[in-house]
Design a protein around this nucleic acid. Structure first.
Lengths: 253, 253
DNA sequence: TAGTGGTCTAGACCACAAT
DNA sequence: TTGTGGTCTAGACCACTAC
């Protein structure tokens, strides 16, 4: 290919097609040229053509299928998980609520086991490291499709010996943290959520059925009862399908 | 290399080193084997060794330097931009506040121009498409390092002919949306923010100095005066350096 | 059967970094 | 000078898809 700058050939090809995709010249679902066609069009070897395709795939712009070709990904309509407020009077967990609103059937897998708090978890719960906590792993499915995985930690100093020691068992199973804590006289007053993004871990790719090039949103959520942390949770959702919506008040102060 | 499953060689190598990095066997800053060493260790060609390294680079786990090697990235300490509430009585914008709290020097570049509203912006501002809006492009730097780029849109039907027509000019420049709107009798009551993640666009890579394999957090923020949108803004921050922290109340309802 | 993408080998030249 | 990663060529075999 004609090289007029220091830009590598694969980057130039990727730039060309990225522009076409973003500007709409290549609409959703349309097919990109095959590797052979790119080789002819730009006069490069197959590896360079593949490298260019790989860049776009890593950016999540296209998806490749063996034997068929590469296609512009549908602009995922993003389901926004609203996080405006948490409600105290409620008979179901947040996820089941969201799913019902969206007209989906919700399934939740959960399993608990006691464990000593890691340094990270201890800091978030404001307890000493190695203090026992109840660790619960969740997997949420909507319409049979995995949507979210999370791991929650509750200090056993709060819940040991009560009905709610294990979130997924007992009469209040599935009620959510606020209702469960209410039942033992702990009044949750607010939640703090921190959102970051990163590449998925291998087990997250497996558990969430994440296509290549997609990152995850990682949410660190802590429920507080007047400055006392009563639960902290690591929540992971696929970044291509979910956004998070927050409502923020303007205060006179 | 010995192949005992259908797992490709490059994926196997990447898995090995990903595990070592995540579990801490390869601490931050430590050097990965060179491509030649990987070729010998696993008995593969250079392309396969490079492919494995490339996977880890795309996941943001390592960084490569020509002539030196590949190194485990320092676990970026994430600066969390707090978004608990917006304050009405305030003499500076949000960014300058954040920066001052963090002990950093803040610089803001901004430039405005009127433009017709795109379909997307029109929907967010609840106005008709092609209605004129003031479009302002911002670039925020802390300690000279680019941190955030954003583009805001304000309906000119609200601001045309007033002191605040251009956010970066006039007596109230740099005051922030709430204070500026107050000055023309528009009382902003809340903000709604939607957070998603995606690969950066080429100009964002340039403007934010983003290393390979890093995604961005994209925030769509709209300020409302009692359900009337008065400003909407697309905010982009590097995902490896910034997280977003929200405080969410628990309501009795 | 022909075309596609997925994986892999065996080379090559270059710019940059360490010595 | 030597070793490193960055880029590139010219082949090859395989599994899957469409016809």
């Amino acid at each position: 290919m004609t090289r007029w700058t220091g830009t590598p050939a694969y980057a130039q090809i990727a730039n060309d097609y990225r522009t076409k995709i973003i500007e709409g010249a290549l609409p959703e679902g349309s097919k990109l040229p095959s590797e052979s066609e790119l080789m002819n069009e730009y006069g490069v070897s197959r590896i360079v053509a593949r490298q260019a395709i790989g860049v776009l795939r890593n950016e999540g712009l296209i998806i490749s299928h063996t034997g068929k070709g590469s296609f512009v990904k549908p602009r995922q309509q993003i389901d926004r998980l609203a996080r405006n407020r948490y409600r105290r009077r409620k008979l179901t967990g947040e996820f089941a609520d969201d799913a019902r609103r969206a007209g989906a059937t919700a399934n939740i897998e959960a399993s608990s086991a006691p464990a000593p708090a890691s340094n990270n978890i201890a800091a978030r719960l404001k307890i000493d490291a190695s203090t026992p906590v109840m660790r619960t792993a969740y997997r949420f499915l909507a319409n049979g499709r995995p949507i979210q995985v999370s791991t929650s930690y509750e200090p056993l100093t709060l819940t040991e010996g009560t009905d709610i020691e294990r979130p997924e068992e007992g009469p209040l199973a599935g009620l959510g943290v606020i209702g469960r804590m209410d039942s033992i006289g702990v009044r949750v007053t607010e939640a703090i959520e921190s959102v970051t993004t990163r590449a998925p871990l291998p087990w997250e790719v497996e558990a969430l059925d994440i296509p290549p090039g997609v990152h995850v949103l990682s949410i660190e959520r802590t429920f507080l009862a007047d400055d006392l942390p009563v639960e902290t949770c690591d929540i992971v959702v696929p970044g291509d399908r979910y956004g998070l919506t927050y409502r923020i008040p303007v205060v006179d102060e």
